[in-house]
């Protein structure tokens, strides 16, 4: 069960600290959890694990594909590996190793792809991922999550540690994001959350954009448009039942993602709507046919049209 944070304007803990501290906590009771880095331990904080749990931190150097293979080999020997690198390196660069050495070979790799989409900031276009969710969704049996805040990120890390065989990917900012959920909230893998109800429009989103989607819903309500917001933090397996129930009676549906419109949350929702013959005004609000670029996260969020104002405009456009 989840409850909403008392003050959505407050920032939570840094997500990288959440990941590191949760892994350190898991290591107290699970002697199979190991953390692997590709020379971004200073950026992720994973090197703190080297200090507290030196046997459980595996430095792989700047060799992401090798890191995924090493994780797969450790999994074959019974360990529960958690790997970290920036989202594009964890997915685009090391995809075949994740796919074959990991999934196809029946091994487990838990992956934290950090700074997805506009979170990349000044690392720029080479470090930007607008396609990581699309890639990971294609892996049979993979679990793909985009948690909204620190509470949900911690829950995802703990859930991954217990999931057994398979590829488990989550993408998250390294830095702090606004609170959405109250501490102690729990979730269910493969189940989305209706975080705000409304009668006219349905916005389905994931990740830190959930805060922006809630901002948008408040703005739309002030204009007399009821906007329901669904947190689809688990993009695979997808909560089809929730999509089908939430869409009923709505005048439009908008997906809102920090990702390209091909293959991500928007595509996943479109597939469900199309296969169930649901005809409703629909838009995938995301990045269309563009590469990343350098700039502050704030600049990039605006540049790629991933703001509350932009999604409000999309909803208004669909409602006519």
């Amino acid at each position: 069960m989840f409850t909403m944070a008392s003050d959505r304007s407050q920032m939570g803990r840094e997500l990288r600290s959440v990941v590191v501290e949760t892994l350190q906590d898991l290591m107290k009771t699970n002697d199979r959890v190991v953390a692997l880095e590709a020379d971004l331990g200073g950026a992720s904080g994973m090197t703190k694990i080297a200090a507290t749990n030196p046997d459980r931190f595996v430095q792989c150097g700047i060799a992401e594909a090798d890191m995924m293979g090493i994780a797969a080999g450790m999994s074959a020997e019974g360990f529960v590996p958690f790997t970290h690198t920036f989202a594009p390196f964890a997915t685009r660069r090391a995809f075949d190793q994740v796919y074959l050495s990991g999934a196809y070979a029946g091994n487990t790799i838990n992956i934290y792809g950090s700074d997805p989409g506009f979170c990349v900031g000044t690392n720029g276009g080479t470090h930007t991922s607008w396609e990581d969710v699309a890639l990971m969704r294609t892996i049979p049996g993979a679990v793909v999550c985009d948690p909204a805040d620190d509470v949900q990120t911690e829950w995802v890390v703990r859930a991954f540690a217990e999931m057994g065989q398979g590829i488990h990917y989550f993408r998250a900012n390294r830095k702090a994001v606004r609170n959405v959920y109250a501490p102690g909230s729990t979730f269910e893998m493969g189940k989305g959350n209706v975080v705000r109800e409304g009668d006219d429009a349905l916005v389905i989103t994931a990740g830190q954009l959930l805060s922006d989607a809630l901002d948008a819903a408040e703005a739309l309500e002030a204009e007399g448009i009821g906007c329901e917001v669904v947190d689809m933090f688990c993009i695979k397996p997808l909560d089809e039942d929730l999509i089908l129930s939430a869409v009923a009676g709505k005048r439009c549906v908008v997906t809102f993602e920090n990702h390209g419109v091909i293959g991500g949350l928007g595509s996943a929702v479109a597939e469900v709507l199309a296969e169930h013959g649901i005809s409703v005004p629909f838009r995938r609000h995301g990045v269309v046919e563009r590469f990343g670029q350098v700039g502050s996260p704030h600049f990039l969020q605006k540049e790629y049209g991933l703001t509350a104002e932009a999604v409000c405009a999309t909803v208004r456009g669909l409602l006519g």
Partner: peptide, 25 residues
């Protein structure tokens, strides 16, 4: 068969991970 192989190069990393894991154990 202790590790799936075929996409050349990948067995080297998985073997490295297995050896590292064996030493940890």
């Amino acid at each position: 068969v202790d590790m799936t192989t075929g996409s050349l190069g990948q067995g080297t990393s998985t073997a490295a991970g297995m050896a590292y894991a064996l030493r940890l154990k």
